[in-house]
């Protein structure tokens, strides 16, 4: 429906009916302190009883209010999402800091996991930035990022409005003063999700599977441990974020099942980049990009030997987890704990 059509509805249907069909309209009214309108009348008529000055405080007149409400309802009606169409991206090489060409073209499809390795300052963030802004040969690296094999014009890049990429990093925290349930419900509402209860339930359940220590729905998000926070962020990103691409910058290795976490995101058909030196994560990826001197030096597909070693690394990791749990529970550590196979 167009803004004009919404304006016609607001002009003819009783406000109560409109709000019943589009409950998000309550937010619009609250934003302009119009919560107490006569709901039995159409919006435009109810508005006649509002003081001119009250509207003017928001820079509105009556027609402006009607137009804004129409635009608001149009904006928050679920519509086709161009992001859902992102099935692959291609990194087409530029050059490194010494202006040596990268000579590379790497296509990554939904569900694929790519790790990015290289020393600090080598240019990992620059690659992530190029992906985020969909560089078209116009950034310092000269790289091009194609979506579904095609170049994008500036208009299409702007359309993405930063929603192409979701990010997860070690430094991220929750700052909202909400319980886990309220938090998930709030995010679901923003996504205009029709089945809020269902999505919230599955997010909560998956987050708990990923977290070492369980938590309840009534826990405040600000009180979650590092591992629990990360688990909740990952489950939430997997099930509620629009973004087809996920950039992960090192996940803490305590209190969360990292391999499962990445697997969960991949199963949701996301394109995943993990910047990490954690062997378990780096080798869980299908390919890894080696960054040197500001450029992509090499792309390695995981070898059979590496795949095999993953099992051993996982055992080592499980041993470390077990030791942590034991320490947390106040137990003593014995030599035999170090060799015990994982359960």
């Amino acid at each position: 429906m167009t803004v004009n059509e919404f304006m016609m509805i607001l002009d003819s249907k009783p406000l109560a009916e409109v709000l019943k069909e589009y409950p998000i309209g309550w937010d619009f009214l609250a934003n302009f302190r119009l919560n107490n309108l006569a709901n039995e009348l159409p919006f435009s008529q109810a508005l006649l009883k509002v003081d001119d000055e009250a509207l003017a405080e928001f820079g509105l007149d009556r027609f402006g209010a009607l137009k804004s409400f129409g635009a608001f309802l149009e904006q928050f009606t679920p519509k086709e999402n161009p992001l859902e169409e992102v099935k692959s991206i291609t990194i087409s090489g530029g050059w490194n800091k010494s202006r040596t060409p990268e000579n590379i073209s790497l296509t990554i499809s939904a569900g694929e996991i790519i790790s990015i390795v290289g020393p600090t300052g080598s240019g990992k963030s620059r690659l992530l930035n190029d992906i985020e802004c969909l560089a078209q040969g116009d950034t310092l690296t000269g790289r091009r990022i194609l979506v579904n094999g095609a170049e994008l014009d500036d208009l299409q890049r702007f359309e993405m409005e930063g929603k192409l990429v979701a990010q997860l990093s070690q430094n991220m925290n929750f700052v909202m003063d909400l319980t886990v349930r309220e938090f998930l419900e709030m995010h679901a509402k923003c996504r205009l999700t029709p089945n809020v209860g269902e999505v919230v339930a599955i997010c909560f359940q998956r987050a708990n599977q990923l977290a070492g220590e369980k938590f309840s729905e009534d826990t405040l998000v600000t009180q979650l441990s590092g591992g629990q926070s990360r688990a909740l962020m990952i489950a939430d990103t997997a099930y509620m974020s629009d973004s087809p691409i996920i950039l992960i910058d090192e996940i803490e290795n305590a209190g969360i099942n990292r391999r499962q976490a990445i697997g969960l995101l991949a199963k949701r058909e996301k394109i995943i980049f993990v910047s990490t030196h954690d062997p378990l994560l780096a080798l869980s990826a299908h390919k890894r990009i080696i960054i040197k001197n500001g450029g992509i030096a090499k792309v390695i597909s995981i070898s059979e030997e590496e795949k095999e070693s993953l099992g051993v690394i996982e055992n080592l990791d499980n041993t470390m987890q077990r030791l942590r749990t034991a320490l947390r529970a106040g137990e003593l550590i014995h030599m035999k704990d170090l060799s015990e196979p994982s359960s």
Binding site: G162, N171, M172, N173, H187, C190, M240, S241
Partner: peptide, 17 residues
């Protein structure tokens, strides 16, 4: 960079409101 992806999305949503 210091808040969760979810909070960024909620924030952007509230801006669009």
């Amino acid at each position: 960079d210091i808040v969760s992806q979810a909070e960024r999305e909620v924030f952007a949503f509230n801006i669009r409101q």
